Lab assay of single mutants.
Amino acid sequence: MSRVPSPPPPAEMSSGPVAESWCYTQIKVVKFSYMWTINNFSFCREEMGEVIKSSTFSSGANDKLKWCLRVNPKGLDEESKDYLSLYLLLVSCPKSEVRAKFKFSILNAKGEETKAMESQRAYRFVQGKDWGFKKFIRRDFLLDEANGLLPDDKLTLFCEVSVVQDSVNISGQNTMNMVKVPECRLADELGGLWENSRFTDCCLCVAGQEFQAHKAILAARSPVFSAMFEHEMEESKKNRVEINDVEPEVFKEMMCFIYTGKAPNLDKMADDLLAAADKYALERLKVMCEDALCSNLSVENAAEILILADLHSADQLKTQAVDFINYHASDVLETSGWKSMVVSHPHLVAEAYRSLASAQCPFLGPPRKRLKQS
């Protein structure tokens, strides 16, 4: 649940008159999402009104509101027999009622949201009550392989729920002597030191190019640089560091992050930047690179990204790559990247197969709970 924001200063709310007192009302909304995959969808019983329910879910471990999704594969009634019906059901509720908006969509073979439908307002739910769409999607369109909505005969539904909580009022009075504290510009100011090479005390040599930097900042941000300058190493004695395995453009992006906490060109060089972040123990930059690479996972590059993640101990990226390969196994196994990995990294192939087997055979063990970014 997000923290209630402070109200904007009255002088910034309007260029008009300023009242002596004010009130700011925040209506709290808890948002969460749920993904439900139905394997072997074409084998569902086709009687009209037949119901399939998901397991229950909530916004978190401490949330007492429990929900589930309900599907009628062949419609709810005679009117909707040519459609799939989809509903959000409130299973248990400690209150007399709650209000919530919802959005349903289908994830296609690429994991993209399609055929989205959402409620136009927050509906009133009581325990045992459901709301949804009797005519969510035509069955003939859903079952047509050309539309790519049932890869490997799996129907994957994605649901986003927004639950309306209580409202909170914050009130106060205006004073004539309003003090406005300026925003912190530390990142910009440190970035200026790097860009202008002011007050530098060490030189970093990268592929024949020299960059002036500040030992204190490098040591504070990177345990690797800290070790170089702290001990009686040649880098500490000469205040000069030779860097041979990072390209200059990648190095500059890494230094921008060290000084400012930002990497504006990360998406263009996420793979190389991940390697640099791993070498210099820049954990936050490493996770930022993992996130960017996750966003660009595809059938063509899944094997290469899995190898990269394994090489640099990028655990979150590795998990996402394995899950992606499992979901698109029939396509990924035909790529040149996968065939190369079979020869060069057989242990990763074995890991992917083990994960695929456990996903398809849940009876082999208890269900695993899916539970950071600093």
Rank of each mutant, 00 (worst) to 15 (best):
L285S: 02
P9T: 04
L107R: 14
S171N: 03
W67P: 00
W36Y: 08
G148Q: 07
D278E: 02
M117P: 13
E195V: 04
F104K: 00
A216K: 00
A109E: 04
A61K: 08
E235V: 02
V299M: 06
E235F: 08
N177S: 02
W338F: 10
Y83Q: 11
A352C: 12
E112D: 03
A329T: 07
Q360V: 08
S54G: 02
K268G: 10
V51L: 07
C159D: 00
L76S: 15
S336I: 07
F229Q: 11
N239L: 04
A100T: 12
I258V: 02
S330D: 08
C68W: 02
V164D: 09
A219S: 08
L293M: 02
R370A: 08
T25F: 12
S54F: 00
Y327A: 02
Q26I: 04
V161A: 06
S15G: 06
N169T: 02
C205D: 14
T25K: 00
I258Q: 10
F136W: 06
D130F: 01
L317Y: 00
S330E: 10
L88M: 06
C361V: 15
V161Y: 06
L364G: 15
S171L: 03
A302K: 00
L143N: 14
E160V: 06
G261W: 05
C93K: 07
K110D: 15
I106A: 11
E79D: 14
D130C: 07
V71N: 13
Q360I: 15
L317G: 01
S295G: 05
R198D: 09
V164M: 08
P346E: 11
T335C: 06
S298F: 04
A219F: 10
V71S: 10
S344P: 04
Q173G: 02
D152N: 09
M48G: 09
L308D: 08
E195M: 06
R45G: 02
P94S: 07
V250G: 11
S374W: 09
P346R: 06
A220Q: 14
V126A: 09
H347C: 09
K339S: 10
A116F: 06
W36F: 02
C294E: 09
K339T: 13
E334I: 09
E160D: 11
K318H: 04
Q316K: 11
L364P: 12
L218Y: 10
K115E: 10
E351W: 07
L149T: 04
M35K: 04
K64W: 12
N39D: 04
V30S: 01
D77Y: 06
P94K: 09
R185P: 02
C256S: 02
F211T: 05
V30I: 08
S55H: 03
R99S: 15
E79R: 05
E234W: 07
M269R: 05
T335G: 03
K372D: 10
K279T: 02
M48I: 06
L297V: 13
E118S: 13
H345Q: 01
I217D: 00
D267F: 08
A116V: 04
V18Y: 03
R354I: 02
A219W: 13
L143G: 04
C256N: 01
A277M: 01
H347I: 10
T37G: 02
T25A: 01
L90E: 01
C294R: 12
Y327M: 03
L282P: 09
Y34L: 03
T114Y: 04
F133M: 07
Q165L: 03
E290P: 00
F136Y: 10
L333W: 11
R368Y: 14
S59K: 02
S222V: 15
I325M: 03
V349D: 00
A11V: 06
G191A: 02
C159L: 13
W22N: 00
Q212R: 12
E304D: 10
A19H: 07
L65C: 07
M13W: 06
W36G: 01
K318W: 09
N296C: 13
V342F: 12
E113A: 04
P17I: 07
F324K: 01
V206A: 14
K180F: 07
N196F: 12
L371F: 10
V224G: 09
I106Q: 03
I106D: 00
S85A: 13
F43Q: 14
M117G: 08
F136S: 07
V51K: 06
S15N: 05
S295M: 10
F43T: 11
R198Q: 09
T200C: 14
F229V: 15
V179W: 04
L157T: 09
V224R: 15
D271T: 08
